[in-house]
């Protein structure tokens, strides 16, 4: 059995929470079954099952379950052809992610874990469309330190395009108490495991009833309403990461409320939400 050639032109670029890989697509002969993407935190990337982070037929791949800390990853690809023959590993590429405010800041409030999963949140991983209106008739009202993510924060936030949500905007509120107002800036962090593919929509972020920012979501895969673990090999979920920086003077000593209102489009599915003092 002849051996396919390894891919060339492998490039890696880091960003918030993820590293994007691109490479040159070979010709049609032999037909590529898939490219196996192997990752390691050291320059020696063994191409073994335990380093496999994804397979694809495309000329690009986003390793988007790397978490909020800044991390460096090294990558090598193996080409597998239609007959099952495997190439030698490609040359190595490396990149470093950009740290999230969730990693660099001090936690003021947080719902869920930044773990690429919605599974710890209410109604996850697939009961949102069927049960949201009954379970959260007035939207979400979550009190940091008191409420339970497993029952009080729905993994799925409907938008006005969703019939199952009543075709109306819904607001998710995160309440938390501060001993003193932040002196510097505050980061509001929305990490999502997925959004809708055609109408990901827009959310308005209000702090203590004042509109503080607008988030336009990236297109997802329309799977986050049905499955909740973006670390599953081959999942269609497309995580995205939204972080906005606000002036600390929007917050006060005592109770504060960050309200997320899905003003346009369809649902988004949460990984975790947090408010962080970033100085």
């Amino acid at each position: 059995m002849s051996q396919p050639r390894p891919v060339t032109g492998l490039n890696a670029e880091g960003r918030l929470g993820a590293i994007d890989l691109t490479w040159d697509l070979p010709g049609w002969e032999p037909l590529v079954d898939h490219f196996a993407i192997h990752a390691s935190d050291s320059a020696d990337v063994p191409t073994t099952p335990d380093t496999l982070v994804g397979t694809t037929v495309y000329g690009r791949f986003s390793h988007d379950t790397l978490g909020p800390e800044a991390v460096t990853r090294y990558y090598r690809l193996v080409t597998v052809d239609a007959a099952g023959a495997r190439s030698e590993p490609s040359a190595t590429a490396k990149a470093r992610t950009v740290a999230s405010m969730a990693a660099t800041g001090r936690t003021l409030a947080q719902v869920g874990e930044f773990d690429s999963k919605s599974l710890e949140l209410a109604l996850a991983p697939f009961d949102g469309p069927n049960r949201f209106r009954a379970a959260f008739p007035d939207g979400v009202d979550f009190v940091h330190g008191t409420s339970d993510p497993a029952t009080d924060w729905c993994y799925l936030h409907p938008g006005p395009a969703d019939g199952w949500g009543g075709r109306t905007p819904h607001t998710f509120r995160l309440r938390f108490s501060l001993d003193s107002a932040p002196r510097g800036e505050v980061g509001v962090v929305l990490w999502l495991i997925d959004t809708h593919m055609t109408v990901p929509g827009v959310a308005e972020i209000a702090v203590n009833s004042d509109l503080a920012g607008v988030v336009e979501f990236a297109r997802g895969a329309t799977r986050g309403s049905l499955e909740g673990d973006a670390t599953v090999l081959g999942t269609a979920l497309r995580p995205s990461f939204e972080e906005i920086t606000l002036s600390g003077d929007r917050f006060t000593e005592g109770e504060n409320v960050v309200a997320i209102t899905k003003a346009e489009g369809s649902w988004h599915a949460y990984d975790a939400v947090g408010v962080f003092d970033i100085g």
Partner: peptide, 11 residues
Amino acid sequence: AHAASVVTLEQ
């Protein structure tokens, strides 16, 4: 393996 979105030839 059956939970993967089907994209590759083996899938």
